[in-house]
Simulated assay, not measured.
Amino acid sequence: MDWNRRACARRGHETYAPDEPALRARLHATTPVGEAWRCLRCGDYVLGEVKGRGPAGDAPVVMRGRALRDVLILRFLSIERAARGVLILLAAYAVWRFSNSQDSVRRLFEDDLTAFRPVAEHFHYDLDHSPIVDSIRKTFDYKRSTLIWVAIGMVVYAVVEIVEAVGLWYLKRWAEYLTVVATAAFLPLEGYEMREHVSWFKVGTLVLNILAVVYIIVAKRLFGVRGGAEAFERERHSESLLEIDEAIHPGPPRQPWEEQVHTTKPPSARTT
């Protein structure tokens, strides 16, 4: 997949006219149908007015190539964190409501269990020794203060997840650190739950969290890995088309008919 052209197709091209004459000449072309400027992301020449002007040092740092792929992965993790945070908030609300009406919920549960008993006996299911029923009955014995603290803890956890989601969506580096630390902190707990009861959902969640931690640390060079933040910024800036052009000094600018030019209406004739 050409991530550069995919991004340009969704967001539009990024063009910039630097003040430096030599660099400006390499990014500008004159065609029979008007001026064209080279896109800083995909490198194609685009007909129309340039989006920005100024010194080359003030040109926007446009993400290209692998950086665009990393954005897609981080946005996926952001959506997953946001969904998890909302579900935990709903669960916290349910626990809080349960703590305020524990006795009435217990009576309702026992009444429904009695009504369901003939059906269970028909299918030879022992409700009195069911692990699910025993687990539900144990929750009725919890103190109200314990349930409230559980609800508060769930709210705090949900807020952390939502903050992670917002930071990852806007590609903030602090959010990457927060995601790694918070996710890694809960990995031992998830592993302990696997010892108690194994399910495909728990296995998938554990694997996803491990992969997320490893990927973010390695790809984003966190905690000094692969050179740390300085190496990450150098790599990001080195992919800028302006800096590539300044570094390689390709010589005289190409003629407009030597480059691919994007236009809604192809010119009727080309001159040489």
Rank of each mutant, 00 (worst) to 15 (best):
N4Y: 05
R6F: 09
C8H: 02
C8R: 00
Y16N: 00
A17P: 00
P18T: 08
E20T: 05
A36V: 03
A36N: 03
C39R: 01
C42M: 05
C42H: 04
G48V: 10
G48I: 08
G54H: 05
P55L: 09
V62Y: 02
V62N: 00
M63F: 11
L68E: 07
D70K: 15
D70E: 13
I79M: 09
E80C: 10
A83C: 14
I88A: 12
A91H: 03
A92M: 09
N100L: 15
L108W: 06
D128E: 15
I132C: 07
V133I: 14
I136C: 10
T139F: 12
Y142A: 15
R144D: 13
R144S: 13
S145W: 10
W149P: 01
V150Q: 08
M154W: 06
Y157K: 06
A158T: 06
E164I: 02
L168M: 04
W169H: 07
W174Q: 08
T179P: 00
T179N: 04
V180D: 02
V180L: 01
V181E: 02
A184E: 01
M194V: 01
S199M: 07
K202I: 01
T205K: 02
L206W: 02
V207R: 04
V207M: 13
L208Y: 05
L208V: 07
A212D: 02
V218R: 13
R221T: 00
L222N: 00
F223Q: 07
G224W: 06
G224M: 06
A231T: 11
F232C: 09
H237G: 14
S240N: 07
E243Q: 14
I244D: 06
I244W: 09
P253Y: 05
P253L: 08
P253F: 08
P256L: 04
E259A: 11
H262L: 14
T263R: 15
T264N: 12
T264V: 08
T264Y: 11
K265S: 14
P267L: 10
S268F: 13
A269N: 12
T271A: 14
T272I: 14
